[in-house]
Design a protein around this nucleic acid. Structure first.
Length: 504
RNA sequence: GUCCCCAUCGUCUAGCCAGGUCCAGGACACCGGCCUUUCACGCCGGCGACACGAGUUCAAAUCUCGUUGGGGACGCCA
């Protein structure tokens, strides 16, 4: 094989994918999922992933969105090999292709006005007849065309769909064989009367130029595919492999969008609410894909290894979040997966992430990386077992880092208000802690139980009361571990303050 | 209205292509028990689904057809 032939073959067999967001809003989880699948496929096959910003909708595209999307991708750790390219840089190519298609007889100029077309469509709709462009302009004679051109009548360019009984068939990697009769495809517009190209065309022309070999996209693109394949063929370009993925719906089975669902569906939201990027990826990848076994938690390497289009589910999946749910601010499974990573990752790594959230809450102390590093690490390690998101460290975990923390009303009622003399008892407990020669777990527990015994009450009353006063929370790690983490002085101060002032 | 796609526990799903090993497995959620000092920790257990109807077959979650339900596409949006 000659070197050139070899290179050509290599070029042809090269696997290239793209993620083509349109910058009309921040990256949302549906878009992220698409990016993730493309990225995993690329990584698995040692392929090239391209980021292409499809910014030709000038009305809705914004610079903020572009930054937001890139930020989101970066945060998730999704990397690309080429780009970002911008679709708007290639508009002249798209226009050229449209004219080329006219020259080669695959498309034609259509002088019908928008008003005429709208009227025809309206009529069809009210008569309950299927509307399709009636090909008025396909049958124009050469004279009629040049006459209209001379009169400067604006025209669009429509793709000429093959006539007859035939149909277009392609093999989707996920959905299998898809067939669509030519008759069901109307002659679609590829160039507007103002001379600008439409998405269907631009997208194909860009994919041809970028030598995209595999297109992994949402199932909503399935309807476009036959028309796009027609364009590939008319342009004489090789048709890429298509793999359409199921969509992510809300609990009411509506497509998710930022407009109707708000922040919960944006990647940014998860970043701000204490998710670990990998946990989000892990959750998202499971929405519509599964390995051949029961594995649900993956390292990056494992996921890349396990990923395959075969595991894609054809049915749409539901992103199960309930608005205003008292307990779950997003899909419970997402929270559970995040909790898993948060609870099992190396503490040093976690501490680094927690720092950010403590800083935002103004709870950070530089000593946590110096003198108090050991304390900080062991405290994080102690309290993380109940936490699911990083923001928990500054929320329910606030009492470990500040004297100014909220009291959860539920345990207050259950553990404090219920017992008339609790203030007095906890004051006595503070004295016992005070007089301990050394404040350690064993002795603290011993004197607590002794006091309960003397007062003839259950130790649980003292223990729960103390937890509530000292942490403001109903739940936590073993109390005596908690006391050690908070430290004698603070424990005593908090107990005494409560004993003196009650709940202020 | 036309076309395309889909259909297993509340949710994510395994099993379906190559029918029996499935009175359907796992995870999350929920409920109960244990442990315990509490808990959103841990452990153990429970609840809970093949949309419906025909057909093929000795045998169907798995194959076929129909019904119903859901989703998507039908723009001079991307």
């Amino acid at each position: 094989m000659s070197r050139i032939a070899y290179l050509q073959e290599k070029k042809m067999s090269e696997i290239r994918l793209r993620f083509p967001p349109s910058p009309t809003g921040y990256l949302h989880i549906g878009g992220a999922r698409t990016a993730i699948y493309n990225w995993l496929f690329a990584k698995k096959h040692n392929a090239t992933l391209i980021l292409r910003i499809e910014d030709t909708d000038i009305e809705r595209s914004t610079k903020d969105s572009i930054e937001g999307i890139i930020d989101g991708l970066n945060w998730l750790g999704i990397t690309w090999d080429e780009g970002p390219y911008y679709q708007s840089d290639h508009i002249s190519e798209h226009v050229e292709s449209a004219h080329k298609l006219v020259e080669t007889g695959h498309a034609y100029k259509c002088f019908c006005t928008k008003e005429d077309l709208d009227a025809k469509r309206q009529a069809a709709v009210s008569a309950k007849i299927t509307y399709q462009y009636d090909r008025t302009c396909l049958n124009l004679s050469a004279e009629e065309i040049s006459s209209k051109e001379e009169q400067k009548i604006p025209y669009t360019i429509r793709f000429k769909v093959p006539g007859g009984e035939g149909s277009l068939v392609f093999e989707d990697k996920v959905y299998g064989r898809i067939e669509r009769t030519y008759r069901d495809i109307e002659d679609f517009v590829i160039l507007r009367s103002n001379g600008t190209p439409l998405y269907l065309l631009s997208n194909v022309v860009d994919d041809i130029r970028d030598r995209i070999s595999h297109i992994i996209r949402g199932q909503d693109g399935l309807g476009n595919t036959p028309r796009q394949i027609l364009i590939y063929e008319a342009l004489g370009a090789p048709v890429p492999v298509f793999a359409h993925m199921s969509l992510t719906l809300d609990p009411k089975k509506a497509k998710i969008s930022k407009r109707s669902h708000g922040e919960v569906v944006t990647v940014q939201f998860y970043k701000e609410n204490g998710f670990l990027p990998w946990a989000l990826i892990n959750f998202l990848v499971l929405l519509g894909w599964s390995p051949a076994n029961d594995q649900e938690i993956f390292t990056k390497e494992e996921l890349i290894q396990a990923f395959s289009l075969e595991g894609m589910n054809k049915a749409n999946s539901i992103f199960n979040y309930q608005k205003d749910h008292p307990k779950f601010f997003t899909d419970p499974k997402a929270l559970s997966i995040n909790g898993h990573y948060l609870q099992t990752m190396p503490v040093e790594e976690l501490a680094f992430l927690v720092k950010d959230f403590l800083q935002k809450a103004e709870l950070w102390d530089d000593a946590y990386v110096n003198d108090k590093k050991e304390w900080f690490l062991s405290t994080i390690d102690l309290i993380r077992s109940r936490f699911h998101v990083l923001t928990d460290f500054a929320g329910p975990g606030r009492a470990y880092f500040s004297d100014d923390y909220e009291m959860d009303p539920k345990p207050v009622k259950k553990n404090l208000t219920k017992h008339e003399k609790i203030g007095e008892w906890l004051g006595m407990l503070a004295d016992r802690y005070e007089s301990l020669p050394e404040f350690n777990k064993e002795d603290a527990e011993r004197v607590t139980r002794e006091l309960a015994d003397e007062l003839d009450i259950k130790p649980g009353i003292l223990i729960n009361g103390t937890r509530t006063v000292v942490t403001g929370q109903a739940a936590g790690a073993g109390l005596f571990d908690v006391l050690m983490a908070i430290g004698r002085e603070r424990v005593i101060a908090r107990l005494e303050k409560f004993s003196r002032e009650g709940l202020s």
